[in-house]
Design a protein around this nucleic acid. Structure first.
Length: 253
DNA sequence: TGGGTGACGCTCC
DNA sequence: GGGAGCGCCACCC
């Protein structure tokens, strides 16, 4: 594939360039451009941009031109279409977008330490499970910062790869989502999240073990229907004598 | 530096 | 039961 750098080398140095283009070309020669993929995902076709440190953004915009223009405005870097040698990465990205546990490096460099911690916590929420904003805040080391977690989620540059659709309100209702709350509900249903059951009873316990979990925790979902007890809050479950699950940690341990 | 903002959460009525 | 009001926290300008 012919590269910008290659073309410029071929053209020689005698062609004057406009100042802003000249600086961009200099950056391409120095560092190379970031690359982008167009992939299918549960949100429909998306563009995924990848820089040297990992994936920088996932977005659902109309044209390649618009995506590249916005990317240049936001990250100050040129974007080029991924080439044939990037096929392996394209496959891994598609799998990760589909919610499979595939290791894909993410570039969180531009984020504050709090934002990075939130992104790491949310990335660990398994497919088919959800956690409340307040839980994410606590796990990220800032108990009480649930509203701040909402702010981070609202600006999540890596939807699906950082599954912010799996962060829900404390009462088990889905809450808001950047692409629309309806889209969030659809994604969660596709992952098998029992939204009706969750709403109003986000915690589930069983007398057989004396343990309570987030209702979508993989352990809670194995409880036989006749042994299930629903709770509205961890405090209610604790008062009833249950201890918190060590896997989904419904309260601080 | 400090006030405004918000994909939250809790209390009160 | 549900909505209004307010606290909280991190970030942005």
């Amino acid at each position: 594939m012919e590269t910008v750098a290659g073309v410029l080398r071929g053209a020689g140095e005698s062609i004057p360039l406009p100042e802003d283009l000249g600086s961009l070309v200099g950056r391409v020669l120095e560092e190379g451009a970031d690359v982008f993929f167009r992939l299918s995902s549960p949100l429909g076709p998306v563009f995924v941009a990848v820089g040297r440190r990992g994936v920088t953004c996932v977005d659902r915009v109309g044209s390649e031109e618009e995506f590249c223009r916005r990317y240049r405005g936001r990250f100050g870097r040129l974007l080029m279409p991924a080439g044939k040698r990037d096929l392996d990465l394209a496959g891994r990205l598609a799998a990760a977008l589909a919610g499979r546990q595939v290791e894909v490096p993410l570039d969180l460099e531009r984020m504050t330490p709090f934002q990075r911690r939130v992104m790491r916590v949310v990335r660990g929420i398994p497919r088919g499970e959800v956690r409340p904003y307040g839980w994410v805040a606590r796990e990220a080391g800032s108990p009480g910062a649930s509203r701040a977690v909402g702010n981070v989620m609202a600006r999540n540059p890596l939807p699906l790869l950082v599954p912010c659709h799996r962060v829900v309100r404390n009462d088990g209702t889905p809450g808001n989502y950047g692409f629309s709350p309806r889209e969030k509900v659809r994604l969660l249903r596709e992952e098998g999240v029992p939204l009706e059951e969750l709403s109003g009873s986000p915690y589930t316990a069983t007398p057989t073990t004396g343990v309570f979990c987030h209702t979508t925790c993989r352990h809670a979902r194995r409880i036989q229907p006749e042994n299930r007890l629903a709770f509205r809050s961890p405090a209610d479950a604790l008062r009833a004598g249950f201890r918190p699950c060590r896997v989904c940690r419904p309260v601080a341990v």
